[in-house]
Structure formats: structure tokens, C-alpha cells
């Protein structure tokens, strides 16, 4: 697919309202711009110059990955991944010299935000990043946030395992599965959302936007490139930190941390996920099946057996 077919000129976006600033990008709300097949509000993520030149065709390939999905999968996909929908360029989109400024993505739904009562008396509305899940009950209470119970945590792990398995089944390496890129919600049902999806890559292709490893989520060999296996390492670590919150968990201490939380099978899965040998790490599908078998009824539902 030619990248021009999924590119839009900056001036066509209409009004932009600043939402947030990050180290790599600035995000704006787009109240006037819509896309025909996407029925939700959109944002414009503008790359800072530190990101360097981003190749348009590479981004177009990521956009194409979503468009290639069957309609029913894409409906589900759109509610679980903030994926690039269009490339934003500075001038004539048809010109080969148009410069990539950023991407258009969907706005993160309200349910994935939390209101943090701030110390200055004003409360702050921020995305519910997964690092909140790693904190213990006292810490959460101090932050004024609800502490998810075991059943909710289990379901969050299950949803994350499914999401990673879905990407891997499409041959997509997420890359930076970190505490900041995974958002969660508890209401109405526990679920996760992956953001910053423009740094993904298709197996066999180079990354378009640099895939960095977030500190504290490095696989054993620091220079292990981002791959399906490094995704699986991070998934294992994530699951441990969600199910055993409030402790400092390192790859070395992870198995110990879950010994009183998971059964023998689960502990073995953790050990294998965090192995220094990338080939030893179990597939996300394996994690999904294990978590599914232990999930019981949905925590927010009337148990169907009653």
C-alpha cells in the first residue's frame, strides 16, 4: 500500500487542543477531524525532533496491519490498542518529499483514566498506567486509588496475555510492553489497552520508530533485540508484578514472589518466561490458556452456575 493513501496533511486536521506532552511526542485532541470508518474521537501525536526522521512507508505498513484484519477482529482490536490510523505530513501528501510529523490515533477512552487526588487540593486526571497495579495496598490508598482484588488482577493478566497472543499471531512484535504502555480499567469490566503502538514491528521487518526497552523491563541480555521472545519475557514479568503487588520484583526474585500466589504450573511458567534462553519462554497463548483455566466466572458477573 502506498503511504500516500493513508497520509493526511497537517492543515486538514483542523483545530488541535493540547492534551499532553511527553519526551518523544506531544499529543493533541482533534475536535474537528474524523475518519469515515472510525467512530470515536481522535488525537494527533506529533513527534518531537528527537525522534528523528520517521519513514512514511514504515508507518504505513503498521497502519496496514490493522486494515488487514477482518472486520470483527478490527472492532475488538480498536477497543484494545491505540493504533496509528493515519500518517500526518507537513505539506502536499502526494509529494515524495513530504515530511512525517506524526500519526492520528484514537483518543484513549475515559474508562482508562483515573482521577488522582493531588496534594495541592486539585485532582488530576491521568491515564491508568499498569505501574499502579504493581503497587501495594498502602501505596494505592495513599494515592487515593482503588486496590484491585485478586480476581480483578487475574482477569487483567488474562486480557493482557490474550492481547499479546493476538499480536504475535499476526506476526507483530509489540516491543515495549512496559508499565507505561499498558493501561488498565476495572469498570465496567477489568480490561487492558496498549498505547504507543507506533513502535511495533512486524516479524522480519525493522522497527519504524525506535523500539527502546523501558528501564526495569530489560531482558537478561541487555542487548537482546526486541522480538517475540523479549515480548514474552516482559509478559511473564508483568504477570508476576500484577499478581504479587507491592514487592520489588526482579527477574531473579520473580519465581519466589509467586510461589504463594500461583500453583506449580504457574510457577513453572514464570520460571520459563524469565529464562535467559529466549527459546525457552512459553508463548502468550500458553499463558492465556493457563490463566483461562483458573479464571472461573467473570468477577463482575452473576456467576452463571447460580
Amino acid at each position: 500500500m502506498k503511504w500516500q493513501s493513508v497520509a493526511v496533511e497537517r492543515q486538514r486536521l483542523g483545530r488541535v487542543d493540547l492534551l499532553s506532552r511527553g519526551g518523544q511526542a506531544v499529543v493533541y485532541r482533534l475536535p474537528e477531524f474524523g475518519l469515515p470508518e472510525v467512530g470515536v474521537p481522535l488525537v494527533y501525536k506529533e513527534y518531537r525532533s528527537i525522534v528523528g526522521r520517521v519513514p512514511a512507508q514504515g508507518l504505513a505498513n503498521i497502519i496496514a496491519l490493522r486494515l488487514a484484519l477482518p472486520a470483527d477482529q478490527r472492532l475488538w482490536f480498536d477497543t484494545h490498542l491505540a493504533w496509528p490510523l493515519r500518517i500526518v505530513v507537513d505539506s502536499d501528501a502526494a509529494s515524495a518529499r513530504a515530511k512525517v510529523l506524526g500519526v492520528v490515533m484514537r483518543l484513549i477512552p475515559d474508562a482508562f483514566f483515573q482521577v488522582f487526588p493531588a496534594t495541592a487540593g486539585r485532582s488530576e486526571r491521568r491515564p491508568s498506567e499498569a505501574r499502579s497495579l504493581f503497587a501495594g495496598p498502602e501505596q494505592m490508598r495513599a494515592l487515593g486509588l482503588p486496590f484491585p482484588d485478586r480476581a480483578q488482577r487475574w482477569w487483567l493478566c488474562l486480557r493482557l496475555a490474550y492481547l499479546v497472543a493476538f499480536l504475535h499471531n499476526q506476526g507483530i512484535v509489540f516491543g515495549d510492553i512496559s508499565a507505561r504502555n499498558v493501561l488498565y480499567r476495572l469498570r465496567p469490566t477489568p480490561d487492558v489497552l496498549l498505547v504507543d503502538c507506533d513502535a511495533v514491528r512486524k516479524v522480519g521487518n525493522a522497527a519504524v520508530v525506535d523500539q527502546g526497552h523501558t528501564p526495569d523491563f530489560f531482558p537478561p541480555v541487555i542487548h537482546e533485540p526486541q522480538s517475540i521472545s523479549s515480548d514474552l519475557f516482559k509478559l511473564g514479568l508483568f504477570i508476576v508484578r500484577i499478581l504479587a503487588p507491592g514487592r520489588t520484583v526482579t527477574p531473579e526474585s520473580a519465581t519466589r514472589a509467586v510461589e504463594d500466589v500461583l500453583d506449580r504450573t504457574g510457577v513453572d511458567l514464570v520460571r520459563a518466561s524469565l529464562s535467559a534462553d529466549p527459546r525457552a519462554r512459553p508463548a502468550a497463548l500458553v499463558w492465556y490458556r493457563y490463566l483461562r483455566s483458573g479464571a472461573g466466572s467473570h468477577p463482575r458477573t452473576l456467576p452463571l452456575g447460580e
Binding site: Q73, W76, Y162, A165, F166, H168, N169, R187, P188, T189, D191, A284, L285, Y288, R289, H298, R300, T301, L302
Partner: peptide, 18 residues
């Protein structure tokens, strides 16, 4: 949603099974 519980049917395993 206060007097109701929401149930989302899980996406099928076939979508993640190679």
C-alpha cells in the same frame, strides 16, 4: 452502570491460535 453488571463475552481463542 450502577444497578447493572456488564459482561463482555471473551474474544475467541481461534483469533490467537496459530
Amino acid at each position: 452502570v450502577h444497578a447493572l453488571d456488564t459482561v463482555i463475552v471473551d474474544p475467541p481463542e481461534s483469533w490467537i491460535d496459530p
